[in-house]
C-alpha cells in the first residue's frame, strides 16, 4: 500500500468516524443523565434529515435556513417524545423505559414509511459541499472537512454547556442523583427535557451531515448509524462525551482500515464492528474513557 493510498483511507475513515462521533455524543449524553439507552436516537437522526430535505424540496428554503430549522424542529420532537413516552415512566423499573424507547423507535420508523414512503429519496448537497479537493494525494470532497469541523464544534459546544453553564451543572448533578438534585431546588423535569432537546438536535445535525455524505435518505436509514453510534459510545465508555467522540473516530477508521488491509473481508465490516463491541464488553466493560464508577455526562 502506497503512502498516498494510506492517507486516502485515513481521510475516508476520519470522515466516516466524525459522523459516528456526532451521533454518539447525543446518544451518550442522554444515557449519562437518565441511564436510558435511547434506542430511538437513530430514528431521530432519520427524522432530522427528512425535515431538512422537505425544507429544501417542499418549502424552497435555502439550505442554510432549512438545516438549522430542521435541527430546531427535531429538538422539539425530542421534547414531545420525552414528555409522552419517557417521562411518565420515570418512576417505574428501568426495563419499562427501555421497552418504551424500542417502541418509539419502531413508531418513528413505521410513521416514516407511511408518511415519507419506502422509496429512497435523493438528498441535495449544497454546492459548497460538493467540490473535490486534493490534499496530499488524497481526494477529499469538501463536505468532509465541514463534517469534521461541525462535529468538533458541536462537541466543544456541548462540553461548554455541560461544564460551564448552570443548566450543565444541573445536568451533571442529575446524573449523580435525580432525587437529591430535585431537593436542592433544581427543576429536574425541565433539565431532563432540555437534555432530550439537546440530544435530539445533535442527532438531527448528525442526520443532515449523514445525508450530505451519503445523499440517499429512507425511513430505515437511522437504524445502522444508530447502532454504530451506540457501539462508538460503548467503545468510548457510555455516558462519557469525550469517550463517545474518540469511540466514533476509532470505529470509523477501524472499519475503513479493515476493508483496506483485508479486501476479502469487505462484506463483513458490520460483523467486525459488532465483534469489537463483544470483545470490548468482555475485556474492558467500561470502555476507553470509562472508570469503574463511570463519571456520567
Amino acid at each position: 500500500m502506497t503512502l498516498s493510498l494510506f492517507f486516502q483511507h485515513l481521510a475516508n475513515g476520519i470522515s466516516l468516524g466524525s459522523l459516528y462521533a456526532l451521533i454518539a455524543i447525543g446518544y451518550t449524553m442522554v444515557y449519562g443523565i437518565l441511564r436510558l439507552i435511547n434506542f430511538a436516537h437513530g430514528d431521530i437522526v432519520m427524522l432530522g434529515s427528512y425535515i431538512a430535505f422537505y425544507g429544501v424540496v417542499m418549502f424552497f428554503l435555502p439550505w442554510w435556513v432549512s438545516f438549522p430549522l430542521a435541527i430546531l424542529l427535531t429538538g422539539v420532537v425530542g421534547i414531545i417524545i420525552e414528555r409522552t413516552a419517557y417521562k411518565p415512566l420515570r418512576e417505574v423499573p428501568r426495563i419499562n423505559l427501555f421497552t418504551s424507547a424500542v417502541a418509539v423507535s419502531f413508531l418513528l420508523e413505521n410513521l416514516g414509511l407511511v408518511i415519507f414512503g419506502a422509496r429512497p429519496k435523493g438528498f441535495h448537497r449544497p454546492p459548497v459541499m460538493d467540490t473535490v479537493l486534493y490534499i496530499g494525494g488524497a481526494a477529499v470532497v469538501s463536505y468532509t472537512p465541514i463534517i469534521i469541523l461541525t462535529a468538533l464544534v458541536l462537541f466543544g459546544g456541548l462540553m461548554f454547556v455541560v461544564h460551564r453553564t448552570k443548566v450543565g451543572m444541573a445536568m451533571r448533578a442529575l446524573s449523580k442523583d435525580i432525587e437529591t438534585t430535585g431537593l436542592m431546588g433544581v427543576n429536574t423535569d425541565q433539565v431532563i427535557t432540555f437534555s432530550f432537546a439537546l440530544g435530539s438536535a445533535l442527532a438531527a445535525a448528525g442526520g443532515i451531515l449523514w445525508a450530505i455524505k451519503f445523499p440517499q435518505i429512507q425511513p430505515l436509514m437511522g437504524v445502522m448509524p444508530g447502532l454504530k453510534a451506540f457501539i462508538a459510545a460503548v467503545l468510548g465508555g457510555i455516558g462519557d462525551i469525550t469517550g463517545a467522540l474518540i469511540g466514533g473516530f476509532l470505529l470509523g477508521i477501524a472499519e475503513i482500515m479493515l476493508v483496506a488491509f483485508m479486501p476479502n473481508l469487505a462484506g463483513y465490516r458490520d460483523a467486525f464492528a459488532y465483534s469489537i463491541l463483544i470483545l470490548l464488553l468482555l475485556f474492558r466493560p467500561t470502555g476507553i474513557m470509562g472508570e469503574m464508577e463511570p463519571e456520567k455526562v
Binding site: 475516508n12 466516516l16 476493508v259 476479502n264 469487505a266 462484506g267
Partner: peptide
C-alpha cells in the same frame, strides 16, 4: 474483486483499493 453488503453507504474503502 471486492464486496459490499446491501444497505452499505460507504464504499470508499473498497474503492480506494
Amino acid at each position: 474483486f471486492t464486496s459490499y453488503q446491501t444497505g452499505d453507504q460507504d464504499f470508499t474503502a473498497q474503492l480506494g483499493a
